[in-house]
Design a protein around this nucleic acid. Structure first.
Lengths: 111, 111
DNA sequence: TTGACATATCATTATTTGTTGATATAATAA
DNA sequence: TTATTATATCAACAAATAATGATATGTCAA
């Protein structure tokens, strides 16, 4: 076979695909959208998105564990924010591509 | 409720999450890895990745429909290439983030 | 203390997604 | 033509994933 990857490169690809899964869902992308202009509490996110509290909390858990967002506890509130400017940059680039694309391009059913 | 989105913004978020799904899988990311240094035929991709021909072909169909890759037919061969430099940039940024992250960060089971 | 609010957790269910194996199509060579 | 190589398609199955509803935990105020 050709240039099959080394173990560490396989790991890196697996982690990178996992990172992208963070962005590959409507609800989570909506969360990022809400967080783009600064930190928000969970209830603010719930209110801004209209998504259920448990769904938001489940998503935030994942995003937090993958360190795509940071959390800051203050009294009974938890403030979430985007962890890294490169995260914002990735989303910005993707939205740029979409802006130029025709809607039909994204009919892809499988995957 | 708060700043719920307009119909076109919802569409945009849906398309963007769909775009990210293109990157959110080990096999597809491996395909991009192989295409990073220029166009390759399907069989070259199959050989370089060790992934089955039908799996590769299924993935390429999706990536082509979402225009993350371009195809060019030449005789019995089909050459695929990354469609846009911003696609490369997105992957590059994600890999940078991963490079700095500890492996445990990506234990996220759900999502 | 009690009650109200904010957030997290978790099992269940329904849906989505990835791979496989078989087969189809298309181009070329013998 | 027939055989061979390259690629695409598609149904079926298995695995992963997202939302829900119920419940738990933690903080604060009365």
């Amino acid at each position: 076979m050709g240039n099959l990857l080394k173990k560490e490169e396989i790991t890196s690809l697996r982690l990178t695909s996992k990172l992208f899964k963070g962005f590959a869902d409507y609800s989570r992308l909506f969360i990022f959208e809400v967080l783009m202009n600064g930190e928000k509490t969970v209830s603010e996110i719930v209110e801004a998105t209209g998504i259920s509290q448990s769904a938001i909390s489940n998503h935030l858990k994942c995003l937090r564990e993958c360190e795509l967002v940071n959390d800051r506890h203050e009294g009974k509130y938890v403030y979430y924010s985007v962890s890294d400017d490169r995260v914002k940059e990735i989303i910005k680039l993707a939205k740029e591509i979409i802006k130029e694309a025709s809607e039909e391009r994204y009919r892809c059913i499988k995957y």
